[in-house]
Design a protein around this nucleic acid. Structure first.
Lengths: 225, 225
DNA sequence: CCAAAAGTGTTTGCGCTACACCCATGC
DNA sequence: GCATGGGTGTAGCGCAAACACTTTTGG
């Protein structure tokens, strides 16, 4: 059976990822510089067109790998962007994804991947003009990130070896832009049955070592804040 | 500029709506019976293919009108379904919408619209075999509905003239499948600054009239339960 | 022994829960 | 005046917020 109606043709899907890290008291995201048209030379979120034989998540993962060299990133679908003029090539529906990665890996990948310019930017210092509607996607993704960190274990991706409670508290404070009492924070996290002790500890320069924790696999339906 | 890569062609978008009502202690949804292939004769959610020159929400509204005669329905985008075999015609990405409507309107439309068979079904008594992945979409939509009723004013659509607090409580109890204490329910709702008195009241057969309330326009960031 | 950050308990107040009686209306 | 469902107040409990000192380590 052949599609006749022209109104049903020439639609495509963009899969676009916002990869967050938290570093030095700032939320940062990964951007790449586009090397072809449209928006040649503009900074943009990593992403591209979905193949007609691939799942959305697979497409997002593939595009992230092709554009940045990063693999083994856990992404989640979070938004849809459908403005008619998103792309001037043909009608493109944008489907956005969110991921979290530790800063060390982000730095490393930025250097080793030669094929395209890539860098990470503080959320408060993003280039003025981004490709497509990526500025809008970033704003939406940041809001979704704020939800995710309080009701999922997504922050495990920021701390591959586990986090100390002070580190975790700093992360919450940075992303949510809010301060917490240290004792209440510990009590809450330890009392919620959502993290576990890895029996390892971490030492910063010159003081008492702190225990390393990780989020449990299943913490759904629990809200940290 | 012409799209060359075949992998970028032959993708389409389905916009699909789940329209909920609550009636007689049951959650019900609107289904239509398909009158052409694929899935000819199957019950299905109202929906269809997006045009390449229309917004997703506009497409969902249009399809709902074309398939059921219903207009002036407020819909919200809530999910994405991307299985490769969703449709055998071509690759179709399903984008789902949710709406709430009062039972009287649903009954009326079902009768007046002659062009296609339509009916509403209790969520506990849905036809075994639905078209496409619509069973999956319904299950997802019901979960989203449970979220929406506790943190948005979506239930205004179920009560166009306002609701009495006992009516509202019944609705919550039906959808969430949970019981609440009447006094605590009233205290909570009245104390949250999310509903207002319409200065009208409603009388059921033979007893004290109850005040009619409506949700305020902006109740974001407040969770009823 | 000093600096720096980790770790720990108690008190207070507020919001949620549990619970029983009076009120307005139609018939 | 009675049946039906609407409307109201209070006491106890558990969770969250506020708050300051001790411990461990490296230098």
């Amino acid at each position: 059976m052949e599609i006749k109606n022209k109104l049903y043709k020439n639609i495509g899907i963009h899969v676009i990822s916002t990869l967050f890290t938290v570093d030095n008291g700032e939320v940062k995201i990964l951007l790449i510089r586009r090397s072809n048209n449209p928006y040649n030379g503009y900074w943009a979120l990593p992403g591209g067109a979905l193949y007609n034989n691939e799942l959305l998540l697979d497409g997002a993962v593939r595009e992230l790998r092709e554009k940045t060299g990063l693999s083994n990133i856990s992404l989640e679908q979070i938004g849809i962007f459908d403005r008619l003029d998103r792309s001037n090539l043909m009608r493109m529906i944008g489907i956005s994804f969110l991921g979290v990665i530790d800063i060390e890996r982000l730095k490393l990948e930025r250097i080793t991947n030669k094929t395209i310019d890539a860098d990470y930017f503080s959320i408060n210092n993003i280039p003025e003009e981004l490709a497509y509607d990526h500025r809008e996607i970033i704003d939406d993704s940041l809001n979704k990130l704020k939800d995710k960190i309080v009701n999922s274990n997504i922050l495990n991706n920021l701390f591959p070896d586990g986090f100390t409670l002070p580190e975790l508290q700093d992360t919450y404070e940075t992303v949510l832009n809010k301060k917490f009492d240290r004792r209440n924070f510990r009590k809450k996290l330890l009392g919620m049955d959502i993290i576990y002790d890895t029996n390892k500890s971490k030492r910063f320069k010159g003081n008492k070592p702190a225990k390393l924790y990780k989020f449990k696999d299943e913490i759904d339906n629990k809200n940290v804040f």
